[in-house]
Computed example of a mutant assay.
Amino acid sequence: MMPKVSEAAIAEYDLVAAGLAAAGVVRGSMMGMPCLKIGRKMLAGMFGDAMTFKLPPEPRARALALPGAELFDPGMGRQMKEWVVIPLAESGVWPEYAEAALEYVAP
């Protein structure tokens, strides 16, 4: 079951999406959640009041040091090693990690 998303989280997600639109990033849905994609590759998504980002090792380590950040488990009881969940309280860094995710997955 997907966690509920607040209006504040949606507003921050919309800002991230708008900031990446010129790079060809589009909105979509994957794994039952709103996501951002480049081509067919997902780079970020909304999960409750948090955003998830697919990150390479160095940005991933920095992200995991943020308060409340953790490896993403979409509810199957298994963490996804390249994906980090960053809570709404740290939304000020969402654009930075969205850019890092875009660089990581872009063709």
Rank of each mutant, 00 (worst) to 15 (best):
M2G: 04
M2E: 11
P3I: 09
E7N: 14
A8D: 15
A9E: 08
I10P: 00
A11G: 08
A11Q: 15
Y13H: 09
V16A: 11
A18G: 13
L20Q: 11
A22E: 10
A23E: 14
A23F: 09
G28D: 06
S29L: 07
M31Q: 03
M33V: 06
K37V: 08
I38R: 08
I38A: 09
G39F: 01
R40L: 07
A44E: 01
A44P: 00
G45P: 00
G45S: 02
D49K: 00
M51Y: 00
M51N: 00
L55E: 02
A61R: 13
A63N: 06
A63K: 05
A63E: 05
A63D: 05
L64C: 14
L66F: 09
P67I: 14
G68E: 13
D73H: 04
P74T: 02
P74V: 02
G75W: 01
G75V: 08
Q79C: 04
M80H: 04
V85R: 04
I86G: 03
I86V: 15
L88S: 13
L88R: 13
A89V: 13
S91D: 10
W94M: 10
P95H: 14
Y97L: 05
A98K: 06
A98R: 07
L102I: 09
Y104H: 13
P107K: 11
